[in-house]
Amino acid sequence: MSIDNSPEDERPFPDMSEETPTSVGRALQQARIAAGLTVDAVSSATRVRIAIVHAIEADDFAPCGGDVYARGHIRTLARAVHLDPAPLIARFDAEHGGRPAPTPAAPLFEAERIRPERRGPNWTAAMVAAIVAVVGFVGFTAFKGGGDGNDAKSQVAEGVTTKPGKAASATPKKDKPADPTPEASDSAIAAAPQDKVTVKVTAPGGRSWISAKDHNGRMLFDGLLKKGESKTFQDNSKINLILGDAGAIQLYVNGKKIEDNFRPGAVERLTYTKGDPEAG
Score class of each variant (00 low, 15 high):
Leu77Ala: 04
Asp276Gly: 15
Pro264Leu: 12
Ala178Ser: 13
Arg49Lys: 10
Glu95Gly: 04
Ala152Lys: 09
Val128Ala: 13
Ala41Phe: 01
Val160Arg: 11
Gly244Glu: 05
Val81Lys: 01
Glu95Cys: 00
Tyr272Ala: 08
Gly120Leu: 05
Gln29Met: 08
Arg119Trp: 03
Lys257Pro: 04
Ala125Arg: 10
Ala78Ser: 02
Ala125Gln: 14
Ala70Asn: 02
Thr271Leu: 05
Ala129Ser: 15
Gly228Cys: 13
Val201Gln: 12
Ala212Asn: 05
Gly159Pro: 04
Ala126Tyr: 15
Ala248Lys: 05
Gly165Phe: 03
Ser44Pro: 07
Leu251Phe: 14
Ala94Leu: 08
Gly98Tyr: 04
Asp4Leu: 13
Ile242Gly: 03
Gly228Trp: 15
Val267His: 05
Ala35Pro: 02
Gly206His: 06
Ala152Cys: 02
Asp195Ile: 03
Val68Thr: 00
Val39Asp: 00
Leu28Tyr: 03
Glu10Tyr: 01
Val134Lys: 06
Leu83Val: 06
Ser23Leu: 04
Cys64Tyr: 02
Lys231Asp: 04
Lys238Cys: 11
Asn261Val: 10
Glu278His: 10
Pro180Leu: 07
Leu225Gly: 12
Ser154Ile: 15
Pro85Ser: 01
Phe233Val: 08
Val81Thr: 04
Leu243Ala: 07
Glu110Arg: 01
Val156Leu: 06
Ile210Ser: 02
Ile189Ser: 02
Asp222Asn: 12
Ala45Ile: 15
Asn254Lys: 05
Val81Gln: 00
Phe92Gln: 00
Val132His: 00
His215Phe: 11
Lys144Gly: 10
Val42Leu: 14
Asn150Pro: 00
Asp151Ile: 10
Glu19Thr: 05
Val68Gln: 02
Pro85Arg: 07
Ile131Gly: 05
Ala133Asp: 09
Thr22Glu: 01
Arg26Gly: 08
Lys176Pro: 03
Tyr252Met: 06
Asp67Arg: 06
Lys227Val: 15
Arg26Asn: 04
Asp84Leu: 08
Pro7Ser: 01
Thr171Asn: 03
Met1Phe: 14
Glu158Met: 12
